[in-house]
Design a protein around this nucleic acid. Sequence first.
DNA 1: ATAATAACAGTAATCATTACTGATTTAGTT
DNA 2: AACTAAATCAGTAATGATTACTGTTATTAT
Lengths: 145, 145
Amino acid sequence: MIMKYSRQRAAILSFLQTRKDHPTAEVVYSHVKEEYPNISLGTVYRNLTQLADNGMILRLSFGELGIDHFDADTSPHHHFVCSACSSVIDLQLKEMPFIDEEAGKNFDGMIQGHNIYFHGLCKCCLEKSPIQLNKCDIKCENLND
Amino acid sequence: MIMKYSRQRAAILSFLQTRKDHPTAEVVYSHVKEEYPNISLGTVYRNLTQLADNGMILRLSFGELGIDHFDADTSPHHHFVCSACSSVIDLQLKEMPFIDEEAGKNFDGMIQGHNIYFHGLCKCCLEKSPIQLNKCDIKCENLND
DNA sequence: ATAATAACAGTAATCATTACTGATTTAGTT
DNA sequence: AACTAAATCAGTAATGATTACTGTTATTAT
C-alpha cells in the first residue's frame, strides 16, 4: 500500500533515530505522546510495523520474551541481550561474509541472511551483587530513557 | 525447586524427543493429549518452561512472532526460520569458537554465548509459485505433524 | 476546491502465556 | 503398608502485548 505522509509516523521515526538503545512500542508511545498527546498506542504499533515492512527500521523479536524492540539503525550489526535486565545493546563484529554460503551447504532451501544474538550480562548487571541480580525490580539504567 | 517425577512431564519430554522439527506448546499439547486426554494446556506450558530452565530442552523465541518453539536437541546447532511458512529447521554449521571472544573485544559486559538465526525460504516454499506464497493459508508440509 | 483514500484516535477483540485454586500424585519416612 | 510434606495436576480466570474495527480527520493528486 502507498505510504502517505503523516506527522505521527515522522515523529515515531525521528524519535527512534535519536536512540542508541532499542525501545519497545510502549516506550516509543510514551515519548511521542509528549509531542502528540492524543496519539494512540495502536497508531504507534501500526507505524512501527509499516516502517519495519519498508526496511526503514528493524524489528527485534527476542530479548524479553514476547516484547518486540525497534532499531532505526539498519546498517549491518548484531545485538546483545542481557539475561538479567533484558537490555538490548548494539554489538559490532567483523564481517563473516561466507557464513550464509557455508550454512547453505547442508541446507535445501534458500538462505537470505542471518542474525546473531549474543547473551550474557551487561556491564551494569555485572557490577550488581548476586543478591541484587535475583531481585527482579532492580532495573539497569545504562539506557537513556 | 526440586523436580519431582510426573507422568505428564515425562510424556512431554519423550514426545519432543521424537521430533526433528520444533513444536509449539499447542502442538505438544495436542499430541500428548492423545495419551493423556485430561492433560491441561497450562500443564504443558509449565513443564516446557521447567524443562527449559533445567537445560533439558531449548526454548526458541523467534520464528512466528510471539510463538515459542521447543527443541529437545540441546547439542550445539543453529536454526533456520522460513519467512514464508515460519517452519523452524535445524542447521549444522562448522564451529566458530572465537566468535564470543571476538564480540567481547568491543563490549563492556560478559558474553556467555550466542544464537544464530538464518532466514530465507525453505525447500517447500521455494517450490511454490509467487502467487501461492502470497496466500497465507497455504502451509508447508515439510514437518511431520 | 474536490475527491479518493491513507491515516488517525479510541476502543474492543485476539491470542499466547501465566497465575490461581482446590484436588491428586509422588517420594521419603515410620 | 500407612503418613506426611511438597510438588504437580486439571480447570479456569487473568494478564499483557499486539491487532482489528469504526467513524472521523489529514494528505495528496486532479
